[in-house]
Design a protein around this nucleic acid. Structure first.
Lengths: 205, 186
DNA sequence: AGTTTACTTTGAAAAGC
DNA sequence: GCTTTAAAAAGTAAACT
């Protein structure tokens, strides 16, 4: 009887320690990403819900914590790509993506697809591009997405191409390499998306 | 426009069967040319047929999995070839082993582009999975028939998880009518 | 700038770790 | 859970030309 009681305490302590570890990891990654406190709070709530629903069984604590943070960034409207998230996590990109899809389904997060426009301010500021370029990029994204060009395309690559196009149109040219580096996509992806977008916008350059 | 059902094409059929006899895979691997057997990596021996093209996974228990065939007829033809090869090795094979189709992968074309973002919302975010950062297709699980459909921006789709060719037809019909009533087709 | 190859997703069975 | 098999869809990445 005493042994059983001790075991319960031990289990409870272990669970408590695991939760503390997860929350501190979320905090560490959030700091590294430079996201506001509200995102960490949302991530913590998602992690606790996953814990309550027993979704961590068979998965790593770090993986679930990272996925919760990825989901929280999106929910708060300041998405980080899986590539960016994986740079501050010790879990690899593919695993974060899988775990995110799993907890998202199980918790019924009903996450909407990421809007490429959400990446425009951050990418443009890293490239030191003007407000004018940002507006132009947003206009390109809005217009071409309405024409159906966005289906199936990665939001970061889509945003990168629009920013590249906008930088040319506003005479603040950035090279494909520069834009590709901040968006963490390849130049080939920018070229492919850029061609489609320019054509759909009826721009001839 | 063409009826999307007429664009349905079977791309792969997976079936299981068994010869009703245990096998010494080590010796089968020696005698059967073209056999790939690496028990450290996977317990099954891989044997590929050329016509019809398929891959058979042969296990110690005598159970066999056939995959890669383009029709249920091809599955039967391929397995007859495998049974024949085993008999050539003086291995007892049941006279007419039962062959069970486990999965059929089909492709189809709705004939018009799809706005996956609108479809994701329309079908209900709780019913679909659409993560273009990870994969360009929208994943839609149906209850009846019990299959999974992958919808692409081009209007092409993949249906998998079905056990008979008819499942794909039913699925395409349901998807088309669902998208039509949502006003998301054409 | 554009090509080739390879990997991402879905489904199912087999035997064994 | 993983391992292996095959095939489609379309996007993206890495490595070349």
């Amino acid at each position: 009887r005493l042994r059983k009681w001790q075991e319960r305490i031990r289990t409870k302590d272990a669970g408590e320690r695991n939760l503390q570890f997860a929350l501190s990891e979320i905090d560490r990654m959030a700091s590294a990403l430079g996201v506001p406190r509200s995102v960490r709070e949302v991530a913590s709530v998602i992690y606790r819900r996953a814990l309550d629903d027993d979704l961590i069984r068979g998965r790593s604590i770090e993986g679930v914590a990272t996925s919760a943070l990825y989901a929280a960034c999106r929910k708060e409207g300041i998405p980080r790509s899986l590539e960016e998230i994986s740079e501050v996590s010790r879990v690899e990109r593919k695993e974060i993506g899988r775990t995110y899809r799993y907890i998202s389904q199980e918790l019924g997060l009903e996450m909407e697809p990421v809007d490429p426009k959400k990446y425009v301010p951050r990418f443009c500021s890293e490239l030191e591009l003007s407000e004018e370029v940002q507006s132009k990029a947003n206009e390109i994204i809005e217009t071409t997405a309405e024409k159906g060009l966005l289906s199936g395309k990665s939001p970061t690559g889509y945003a990168a191409a629009a920013i590249y196009a906008a930088s040319l149109l506003c005479n603040e040219k950035k090279t494909q390499r520069e834009v590709a580096d901040v968006a963490q996509v390849t130049e080939v992806t920018i070229r492919n998306r850029y061609q489609e977008q320019i054509e759909a916008m009826g721009i001839h350059s | 426009m063409v009826d999307p059902k007429e664009t349905i094409n079977i791309e792969n059929v997976v079936a299981s069967t068994g010869i009703g006899q245990e096998l010494d895979l080590q010796s089968v691997a020696m005698d059967l040319e073209g056999a790939d057997y690496d028990p450290e990596q996977f317990p099954g021996l891989v044997y590929r047929t050329q016509e019809p093209k398929s891959a058979a996974l042969i296990f110690r228990s005598g159970k066999i999995v056939c995959t890669g065939a383009k029709s249920t007829d091809d599955v039967h033809e391929s397995l007859q070839i495998v049974f024949g090869k085993l008999r050539d090795l003086n291995i007892q094979v049941d006279e007419d082993p039962e062959i069970v189709v486990q999965n059929i992968v089909t492709s189809a074309d709705l004939g018009r582009n799809l706005n996956l973002n609108a479809i994701a919302i329309g079908l209900g975010l709780e019913n679909i999975e659409y993560e273009p950062e990870q994969f360009p297709g929208l994943v839609y699980r149906l209850d009846d028939p019990d299959v999974v459909a992958l919808l692409f921006g081009s209007g092409k789709l993949v249906i998998t998880g079905g056990k008979e060719p008819d499942d794909a037809k039913k699925a395409v019909d349901k998807i088309v009518s669902r998208l039509e009533e949502l006003g998301l087709l054409e």
